[in-house]
Nucleic acid binder design. Structure first.
Lengths: 227, 227
DNA sequence: TAGGATTATTAACAAATACTTTACAAAAAA
DNA sequence: TTTTTTGTAAAGTATTTGTTAATAATCCTA
């Protein structure tokens, strides 16, 4: 399923928030639908059948919690993922939210990267049936894909996105050789065209940061991660 | 392995949590064992040999981290999967947990669906290890096409691509004679034109590396791999 | 939103390795 | 014996990857 086939319903009473989140999501190619209160949200949810609903907790008319409960009662939307928008630290609302049937929550203020990776992670559940394994452990390396974080022998490392994804890919199957083609497909996307040395350069950076011997070159084929 | 053959040790000091998680797991058919602190947990783990341990981080007597470390030292439990229960957002505990040898963590509050699918995912790791078609075994030779690796009588050998593919081809049907034509087709591609000695040279290199007698020449026809 | 920092890509060249050919020797077949 | 086919070593060619630095794109902050 491509992003453009995915509808996200965004519910918040502040137009600014709708604007900014909506903008970020649409950059990623999602179809964004908005609503400004719970009642509208339920109406639109029924009509549009979004795959994901992002719901502000605090809203006039009908708050997010109640809206969530209502939506959860709609059978056609049983597969819809609902996530709350909540101010940082509002613990009680998380609790109430989960009771109401929410799948996750996002705290405000929202960083675009966090938002999009969270959305991606949530949508992945749709396909996977089971929530994807967000955490990979190989040797002394821990890769937390949900939080885009890596720790190597207890030391945290921040990797740029492409490097992270490349490492992530290789680490899903240690010792398996990933063909360059395959890497391009999975990390860059099969329609993107990049020069011939791009992968090598990223590998080089990973070798620098994680350790030279973790990455093995198989000439004529590709690279593998070894532990 | 059926669910009823799987033991899960659940460790938390709050009886309520034990109750609710235990209930959900037993619905799925798992055998659930409980403990209320780290010391008890270790004792029960030794005795019952559970496949999975769900361990609360914060506990009186002995906390989850320490319990985890202790359990990891028990050789019989080396295959046991340990996952932590942690309050949302407690980042430090995650990290400490991994250092202690945990495989994953689950955040509270826990949604039954998340719990069960996570458990499923974790247990899937146990079964893995299935030999795929990517691996060929002939005599003392193991050809791993996924890892582009060869081991001959336990000794690992790295082969260049063409050699690897040539060997790979011959090994798919031991004792079958592959005509030179056929070899060219399959390894080089039918439009590539190479000189008359190319195959021989590659065979020679394989004989050097794998063993002279593995490759038999059938004059006027081609080569075969014998074990 | 300008500009400074970071990240991604490209280009150009070096280095490593793989592959092919050559030339001739050896072996087998005719 | 002559002819054909294969074995071998070394040289030569081609391909692939490593590396660096420069440039482009992007992100982030003030």
């Amino acid at each position: 399923m491509k992003n453009k086939d995915i509808k996200i319903l965004l519910v918040d009473d502040e137009p600014d928030i709708l604007e900014i989140i909506g903008y970020n999501l649409s950059i990623e190619g999602y179809q964004v639908i908005t609503a400004e209160n719970g009642i509208q949200a339920i109406k639109k949810a029924k009509k549009e059948r979004p795959q994901l609903i992002i719901l502000d907790v605090m809203m006039p008319e009908m708050d997010g919690i109640e809206a969530c409960e209502q939506i959860r009662k709609i059978p056609e939307l049983s597969n819809t993922i609902i996530t709350f928008l909540t101010a940082r630290g509002e613990d009680y609302s998380q609790m109430a939210g989960f009771d109401a049937g929410a799948d996750d929550y996002i705290t405000k203020p929202i960083k675009p990267k966090v938002l999009t990776s969270k959305v991606k992670a949530l949508l992945r559940r749709l396909k996977d049936e089971e929530p994807s394994e967000a955490i990979l452990k190989i040797g002394g390396l821990i890769i937390n894909r949900e939080e885009y974080k890596i720790s190597n022998k207890g030391k945290e490392i921040i990797l740029p996105r492409k490097e992270f994804e490349l490492l992530s890919l290789l680490a899903t199957k240690p010792n398996k050789v990933f063909k360059r083609e395959e890497i391009l497909d999975k990390v860059w996307g099969n329609e993107v065209v990049v020069g011939g040395r791009t992968i090598d350069v990223h590998i080089r950076k990973l070798r620098e940061k994680i350790g030279d011997d973790c990455f093995k070159t198989v000439k004529g084929v590709g690279y593998k991660f070894v532990d």
